[in-house]
Design a protein around this nucleic acid. Structure first.
Length: 421
RNA sequence: GGAGGAGUGCCCGAGUGGCUAAAGGGGACGGACUGUAAAUCCGUUGGCUAUGCCUACGUUGGUUCGAAUCCAACCUCCUCCA
């Protein structure tokens, strides 16, 4: 293993130089060999994603960006959605086993995840990116056959030395055979892709190192030279693992996090992260990145707007990104306001005496009346831009603005325009 | 198979009969300060038709006026012995 950034000789391939300067490489196998392979001509590379949730999240953006760059430079990306492996659950660096998922659930997750992948990569044409479900081959294996063919290629001794499971073993936490076999399956995935699609590179999160290496070794026994590359773990400058907001994880699928919510997430990047994030998550030229990152104080806000808009464009498209930018500016300028209602309630609710708490819940800013009450009593709720701290406040027709609408906001970042029909 | 230990709120973790919706910390959210940043400080952090009611300390029963706390069985995990 070679730590990123220390090639023995000068790099020749554009792909690797770009990935390195963008900060997308954490570690990789024999960097010179990979460099030669990449500069010799187009290759096929793959990244695998679990289908354990209905959407990918920001952490998955790095392997996706890596694939995107590779595609841009003429290589062919394959995304493997782990329909087969998700039935097992990757134990890497986890303290306990994942809950088992049903096939049906996994199928639904794959369908949903597919959408985000299609936004990030060009799927068209003969050179387009491929989306493959590893259930395609994993489901075909017969148990004894599998054990004879592949089980004989792995030793438990070696498997136990991987950091990904070592911590679990050292902590004396149980590691089931089911989970232990996961790394074999991922290794087989790599070999199958090598055979079927001539895939020679696997990209994954840094926690995937062990799994990737296993695949490479399996390939070597089959006479193949395979390569591995991991992207860094996404953390904030303050060291925290990234990807949480008020609403939970930062999802890529618009049904789980609106494009505006996604834009906001990037807009709120900490100062110290701006440069790094521009490099990792946008395709702006590095000279531009340097210029933006060099801004100081309040000027950095401009860099954050650009960051947010660029990333949102890549994931959700230019239209959505522009809309999010406008919404963001409108929300925080204090001048402009939202123009389109974000929520619509029945007009009859007004006559019935709609409570402020109910309204806050109705627009999704609180999940219960109790939570809404706390927000109100804590002075965090505004109605038409004035703070209301009376939890018993009821909304009447007279509260509507001239346009028959009502703005409700919680904190500085959440604002809704409610229409009544 | 035998002996001992553990299971608490989003997470970690205190609590061994009433004063416990449960200390403390983390995280999260709201407020102040700011630049929609960081750091800091303050507040909140089970639900409801709300001066009351309901649900909650692995599960199910029991003892008691009263149980997270005592008892029994069960489930799961850990340690030691075989």
């Amino acid at each position: 293993m070679i730590e990123a950034g220390k090639p023995a000789t000068k790099l020749r391939s554009e792909a690797l130089s770009i990935l390195l300067e963008r900060g997308l490489v954490h570690q990789c196998t024999d960097i010179d060999a990979l460099d030669r392979t990449l500069s010799a001509g187009p290759i096929t590379a793959y990244a695998g994603f679990d289908a354990t949730a209905a959407s990918l999240h920001v952490g998955h953006l790095m392997p996706l960006m890596t694939m995107r760059w590779l595609q841009k430079l003429g290589h062919r990306p394959i995304v493997v959605l782990g329909g087969g492996t998700s039935l097992i659950g990757d134990p890497s660096f986890r303290k306990d086993a994942r809950p088992m998922l049903e096939e049906q659930q996994i199928a639904a997750n794959i369908a949903s995840i597919r959408r985000s992948v299609e936004r990030m990569l060009d799927m068209d044409g003969a050179d387009g990116a491929l989306l493959i479900d590893n259930a395609e081959w994993l489901n075909e294996f017969r148990f004894l056959e599998f054990l004879r063919d592949y089980g004989s290629q792995f030793t438990v001794n070696r498997m136990m030395t991987f950091d990904s499971v070592k911590s679990r073993l050292d902590a004396q936490m149980p590691l089931t055979v089911l989970e232990f076999c996961y790394m074999m399956l991922q290794a087989v995935d790599f070999l199958e892709l090598a055979k079927r699609q001539d895939c020679v590179l696997q990209v994954g999160g840094s926690d995937q190192w062990g799994n990737i290496v296993n695949g490479i070794e399996l390939g070597r026994r089959d006479g193949r030279k395979l390569h591995g590359l991991t992207v860094p773990l996404l953390t904030t400058a303050s060291g925290a693992k990234m990807g949480k907001t008020a609403a939970g994880a930062v999802w890529l699928h618009p049904e789980h996090l609106s494009p505006f919510g996604f834009w906001q997430f990037w807009r709120n990047t900490a100062d110290a992260d701006v440069g790094r994030f521009l490099r990792l998550f946008t395709e702006l030229p590095l000279t531009e990145v340097e210029r933006l990152a060099a801004l100081e104080g309040a000027e950095l806000n401009e860099a954050k707007r650009i960051l947010a808009t660029q990333v949102t464009t890549i994931l959700h498209g230019p239209e959505e990104a522009r809309a999010a930018l406008q919404q963001g500016d409108a929300l925080f300028s204090g001048e402009e306001e939202l123009t389109e209602p974000t929520h619509t309630l029945a007009r009859s609710t007004l006559a019935e005496g709609l409570g402020l708490l109910e309204l806050v819940v109705a627009v999704g800013f609180a999940s219960s009346n109790g939570e809404a009450r706390r927000l109100v009593e804590g002075g965090g709720v505004r109605l038409n831009n004035s703070i209301i701290d009376d939890a018993r406040r009821r909304i009447a027709i007279g509260d509507l603005q001239a346009n028959e609408r009502l703005t409700v906001s919680v904190g500085k970042r959440r604002k809704a325009l409610v229409g009544f029909e």
